[in-house]
Design a binder for these strands. Sequence first.
DNA 1: TCCAACTAGATCGTGCACAACTTAAGTTGG
DNA 2: CCAACTTAAGTTGTGCACGATCTAGTTGGA
Lengths: 148, 148
Amino acid sequence: MNDTSNPLLLRDQLCFSLYAASRSVTALYRPLLDELGLTYPQYLVLLVLWEHGDSPVKDLGAALQLDYGTLSPLLKRLEANGLVRRARRADDERSVSVALTEEGLALRDRALSVPPVIGTAMGLDDAEFEVLRGLLSKLTTSVQAYTA
Amino acid sequence: MNDTSNPLLLRDQLCFSLYAASRSVTALYRPLLDELGLTYPQYLVLLVLWEHGDSPVKDLGAALQLDYGTLSPLLKRLEANGLVRRARRADDERSVSVALTEEGLALRDRALSVPPVIGTAMGLDDAEFEVLRGLLSKLTTSVQAYTA
DNA sequence: TCCAACTAGATCGTGCACAACTTAAGTTGG
DNA sequence: CCAACTTAAGTTGTGCACGATCTAGTTGGA
């Protein structure tokens, strides 16, 4: 079996490139987010809250494509760290509304210094950046349509 | 603060696209790999072994960019499932050589049916596929150079 | 020769991801 | 009215990832 006919070669697999790239970017965030006392998924939750304000857990899950099994303990940790508050909604006791505390809101200013560092480290020009983002979106959309 | 000047918008973050795409692809693999009794990282380890044969744990880690903390328990599970054997090398007792069993070798034939399904579901043409793979490699290289 | 430095690997603790199951609250049709 | 259904969230168990720490084997000088 020569190389070109072997579909199981690691270096040819887009999926591995994706997996490796994702982990390397998370590793890039780690020291920066450590300064803020956050993990990458926690930072993503805060991005949603900073952008949209108080949100039910369901909406956070929809925005980040994460389920309750991931979000429930994560939100508990954010609450334990004083960044968010959770409260049952009065009009629908099933729903839990997640709100930023003063501290959680204040953290946004410090977080503003993160994206520029990430952008520089990625080493892509504006055009490459947009092409990559577009292809990743297309890929995710296709895959999720296929999975559904 | 209008949209174009806010660097903390979720939808603009390439990193989130990458994170979401990676998880969606792993989710796509899951039902296929379940048939083979494998997880995605386990499948990656087997890709390396099918391609290169017996390898020390160190080499598996280098190929997949995973550390011993991840690989040691993963390899234990592969061994418990009868797919690999681990043995200390006689010429260097520090090194553990990971070898495929008959069963692990035989699994390769069944794994050949996986990549075509993944390829179809991703919904990218050949050109997009190569552009994406190239940009991901460039990104990973830049990020790792920056991290180092 | 001897031992300090280095190396390969394992272990432990924390925090995701996600499937499967449970609980409690709300909704609806007969 | 209320039983059947649906929905939002939490819980449990398994398997990554990864930092920190530990052990045992190897190596290179003084």
